[in-house]
């Protein structure tokens, strides 16, 4: 037997050195070194200076706007995504296959395209904007518009993580629950929902991560007024255009830190739910 400290378990198959080498080289050039450069720059600037850069109203507002709207969009996608996944997995209706294919549209449609299209529809003189304007609802160039764009961008994540899990649920489980006297609603809440929780959380986390950093679809519909509808990624771009690299780095590091804290929290909830409900 090899000692436990060996880097890899022995295998007769060839090509470990080559494949591992290619992987690590490309990973370093494309991901590790660039992210490292960002963090290094952050260290060079120093914590107090980073904090001083962050500590002004415009930056706070941009960060708050990015994370709050992303959270609301991801929550909406959680509920709507579950409904959509349920309908696609369980019900048979004409056009189901087309709907199933269209769900992935946000993956295939470039964000800039989605951005100008949504803006045109929801502008006060647009197809939907015209209908909403008499009700006093303005979508484009407000927070609501940013939310619409983020819902679009994050829509497929929950559906695509939850749908396969729903399809794998065995009917017997629901039948047992029904024979034990549970009504459909109760079966759903007490039996089905716990089984879906890990997948729901994964989809939620993916949608949230994507929405927080989204730039292309949001900047068209947002209006981009400082302290009003200016998202954090846009503020990074503005700082860069002012050649204020330190300012850009500070916001980028703040975004990374908050994102990772949120993803960590979601991971912990996931571990808790797995332990509580005992699903892999």
């Amino acid at each position: 037997m090899t000692p436990r400290l060996a880097f890899r378990e022995p295998s007769p198959l060839p090509g470990f050195g080559l494949s591992f080498g290619v992987m690590m080289t490309m990973l370093s050039i494309v991901v590790i070194i660039p992210i490292g450069a960002l963090l290094l720059r952050g260290v060079e600037i120093g914590t107090t200076e980073v904090w001083r850069t962050l500590n002004n109203e415009r930056v706070w507002h941009a960060l708050e706007l990015s994370f709050t709207t992303a959270l609301w969009a991801a929550l909406f996608n959680l509920v709507f995504g579950l409904a959509l996944a349920w309908v696609l997995a369980r019900y048979r209706f004409p056009g189901r296959k087309i709907v199933d294919a269209v769900v992935d549209l946000p993956f295939a449609l470039p964000t800039a395209v989605a951005g100008i299209a949504l803006t045109t529809i929801y502008a006060p003189n647009g197809a939907f904007g015209q209908l909403l304007a008499p009700l006093g609802i303005q979508v484009a160039y407000t927070r609501l518009g940013i939310w619409v764009a983020l819902v679009f961008v994050g829509l497929p994540f929950v559906v695509r993580t939850v749908q396969p899990v729903i399809e794998e649920i065995e009917h017997e489980v629901e039948e047992v629950s029904a024979t034990l006297g549970a009504y459909r609603g109760r079966t759903f809440r007490r039996v089905i929902l716990p089984m879906l929780t890990p997948a729901l959380l994964t989809g939620f986390a993916l949608a949230l991560a994507r929405s927080v950093g989204e730039y292309g679809s949001v900047i068209f519909i947002a209006g981009n007024l400082p302290n009003m509808t200016e998202i954090a990624p846009l503020l990074i771009v503005i700082r860069l255009e002012e050649y204020n690299h330190d300012g850009a780095v500070a916001i980028a590091i703040a975004m990374l830190a908050i994102s990772f804290a949120m993803l960590l929290a979601i991971n912990l909830i996931q571990v808790w739910s797995r332990r509580r409900f005992g699903h892999a």
């Binding site: 660039p34 991560a209 950093g213 730039y215 954090a232 990074i236 771009v237 850009a248 990374l256 994102s259």
Partner: peptide, 9 residues
Amino acid sequence: SVSPVVAGL
């Protein structure tokens, strides 16, 4: 989980 803008930066 990294914003494209941060990647560009």
